[in-house]
Amino acid sequence: MGSLAEPLPITAPDPMQPTPYRVVATHPESADVTTLSLVPVDAALPVALPGQFMTVWVFGVGEIPISVSRMGVAGEVLLTVRTVGRTSAAMVGSAVGDVMGLRGPFGTAWPVAAAAGRDIVVMAGGLGIAPLRMAIDALVAAQAGQVTVILGTREPAQLLFGADLDRWRAAGASVHVTVDAADRTWNGAVGTATAMLQRLGVHHDMAFVCGPEMMMTSGARAVIALGAQPHDVWVSLERNMHCGIGHCGRCQLGPHLLCRDGAVVRWDTVDELLEVRGR
């Protein structure tokens, strides 16, 4: 099997050297998810493409990979983080003025240009919307094809980026939200993102899918059942990572190093690998 997607060249001058960034704003998105806005203390890292990630060093705590949620002006980087363990909790709990060390950008990007003029469905589960945000921005800005966004989340209170959803709708995208459970005040659908895709029931030429692995597997298969070619379906796979540049082997999936060959990969190159438990 060849590489999963064309690895992008690492553009940072020294990819192992953290670059100091300062927190200039924190935007709580839900009870345990916050978006940090960071600006470079001195020189900025190269601009991240949609789907790429940075590693974030919280001094004295640890270093973790986080997808770039959006790039602002003057090197500003937005990172959307959920509290999971020590390092992510330290990021979520950080205050304006705190300094962190960033490395990157690393990994492959969503093939946004290849979607031009095609009908694309973007499926996100939970926090999986964060690494898709810039891709959706680019797709709706290009106005080159029909864009459908399906967002699945646990409950209404955990819905992220409500203002973006409105903006994407206003720009012509068809946006559908579904939750796992809700009370009766919820005015939308309850069920999985895959169920929503099946309810819409239309063929899409291409798909970008990001979320928990079980959700991506079920979503990718459902898009293909509706007629998409497996090589036109892209997913983002997360594995524990350390170096981010293909040296340490921590992020291995079968023969692939996901920090370099992923996280964004073509479905037909990983479908069978994901079948095997524990890879």
């Binding site: 959920r82 999971v84 589960g125 939970g126 926090l127 999986g128 699945g152 989340t153 646990r154 955990q158 796992d180 459970a181 069920g191 999985t192 895959t194 169920a195 099946q198 990001c210 979320g211 928990p212 079980m214 959700m215 079920s218 997360e238």
Partner: peptide, 19 residues
């Protein structure tokens, strides 16, 4: 089958950790 898959996803709380 669709309901069973949805229930399976809800049981493991797929959005619960990390992504």
């Amino acid at each position: 089958a669709a309901r069973l898959e949805a229930t399976r996803h809800q049981l493991v709380d797929i959005y619960g950790i990390a992504r």
